[in-house]
Amino acid sequence: MTHETESSLDRRTRRTRKMLQSALDKLLQKKEFEQITVQDIAEAAELNRATFYDHYGDKYCLLESLVGDRFQELLAERHVRFDNTCSTALQAMVLAVNDYLTMLQGVDGKRPLEPHTERAILAVVRRILLDGLKKHLPSTEAPTEMIAAAASWALYGTVKESFRMPERGKPEELADTVAILLTPMLRLIYDPEPGY
């Protein structure tokens, strides 16, 4: 296979995945996720089920991919790359989660999120944190996966709960607070057994 053919295949793959994501996105505006089938998604994308399964294992994988791409776009807009060295990256991640939840739930946060959507958001946040931790500290013996999981739940949960607070404050204030709270947790990577 030539380089040009591989490049063409990558374009086709990206295009097909975008078509499937777009189809799911449109269906989510009309139905709850649980009511949507793979067949619905394939038909909306004007593709067959076999093509769907060539790209995604199931509709949950597609949902995570859709959430991940959107979230990555929000982070790219903020020029964020989490590398465990800078609280501004954490703040930007908080703002991106806030923006995404605002988009999904509305400004008042009254529209409930489906559990699958929440799991997808958490998975993306955890993956971003874990990738950053592993990339910059590949040989550490600290429990990076556990720390990334705890930090992702703390980050996401704090933003989600802020929608329920009567005096919510500005998203930037929330981002500052979350960064102050999570930075010590993420620093455990450098010193996994701090003295007490």
Score class of each variant (00 low, 15 high):
residue 33 F to I: 05
residue 4 E to I: 13
residue 92 A to Y: 01
residue 117 T to E: 13
residue 64 E to I: 00
residue 174 L to T: 01
residue 7 S to H: 10
residue 44 A to E: 15
residue 67 V to C: 03
residue 9 L to V: 10
residue 114 E to D: 08
residue 32 E to I: 03
residue 118 E to G: 14
residue 160 K to T: 12
residue 196 Y to E: 14
residue 161 E to D: 04
residue 21 Q to A: 12
residue 103 M to L: 12
residue 179 A to T: 10
residue 27 L to D: 03
residue 50 A to T: 08
residue 161 E to W: 01
residue 33 F to R: 04
residue 165 M to V: 14
residue 85 T to M: 05
residue 76 A to Y: 01
residue 158 T to E: 11
residue 195 G to N: 12
residue 7 S to D: 14
residue 74 L to C: 04
residue 82 F to N: 02
residue 196 Y to I: 10
residue 13 T to M: 09
residue 9 L to N: 08
residue 76 A to N: 06
residue 78 R to S: 00
residue 182 L to A: 03
residue 143 P to D: 13
residue 117 T to H: 05
residue 85 T to A: 14
residue 140 T to D: 02
residue 24 L to Y: 01
residue 23 A to F: 04
residue 100 Y to M: 10
residue 1 M to V: 15
residue 1 M to F: 08
residue 67 V to S: 01
residue 193 E to A: 06
residue 142 A to I: 11
residue 134 K to D: 02
residue 167 E to G: 11
residue 146 M to Q: 12
residue 190 Y to H: 08
residue 115 P to A: 08
residue 138 P to A: 13
residue 137 L to Y: 14
residue 163 F to N: 03
residue 58 D to A: 14
residue 99 D to Y: 02
residue 135 K to E: 11
residue 61 C to G: 06
residue 54 D to K: 10
residue 80 V to M: 13
residue 157 G to E: 09
residue 109 G to C: 05
residue 87 S to H: 00
residue 163 F to T: 10
residue 155 L to K: 07
residue 94 V to E: 02
residue 29 Q to G: 15
residue 170 K to A: 09
residue 71 F to L: 15
residue 177 T to P: 01
residue 185 M to Y: 02
residue 194 P to H: 04
residue 110 K to Q: 10
residue 77 E to G: 07
residue 22 S to C: 05
residue 159 V to S: 03
residue 105 Q to G: 08
residue 170 K to R: 10
residue 126 R to L: 02
residue 145 E to C: 00
residue 46 E to F: 02
residue 138 P to T: 13
residue 102 T to W: 00
residue 69 D to W: 00
residue 77 E to N: 03
residue 68 G to K: 07
residue 49 R to V: 14
residue 24 L to A: 02
residue 6 E to M: 05
residue 183 T to V: 04
residue 58 D to M: 10
residue 177 T to I: 15
residue 160 K to Q: 09
residue 91 Q to L: 03
residue 173 E to W: 03
residue 158 T to F: 11
residue 14 R to V: 15
residue 38 V to S: 09
residue 107 V to P: 13
residue 34 E to T: 11
residue 115 P to F: 08
residue 158 T to C: 11
residue 153 W to E: 15
residue 91 Q to N: 05
residue 27 L to M: 09
residue 182 L to K: 04
residue 105 Q to H: 00
residue 2 T to R: 06
residue 163 F to V: 12
residue 72 Q to G: 06
residue 123 A to R: 04
residue 98 N to W: 12
residue 88 T to R: 05
residue 61 C to H: 00
residue 122 L to F: 00
residue 172 E to V: 13
residue 169 G to R: 02
residue 190 Y to V: 11
residue 179 A to G: 08
residue 156 Y to C: 07
residue 49 R to A: 14
residue 148 A to K: 09
residue 7 S to P: 07
residue 133 L to M: 13
residue 60 Y to H: 15
residue 85 T to I: 11
residue 179 A to I: 08
residue 150 A to C: 02
residue 5 T to E: 09
residue 130 L to M: 06
residue 181 L to M: 14
residue 30 K to I: 12
residue 39 Q to T: 15
residue 189 I to M: 07
residue 90 L to V: 11
residue 91 Q to D: 06
residue 37 T to I: 08
residue 188 L to T: 03
residue 135 K to P: 00
residue 160 K to R: 13
residue 181 L to A: 14
residue 155 L to P: 11
residue 179 A to P: 04
residue 89 A to L: 07
residue 175 A to G: 14
residue 75 L to F: 08
residue 88 T to Y: 05
residue 148 A to Y: 01
residue 29 Q to E: 10
residue 67 V to P: 12
residue 50 A to Y: 03
residue 187 R to D: 15
residue 93 M to H: 03
residue 14 R to H: 09
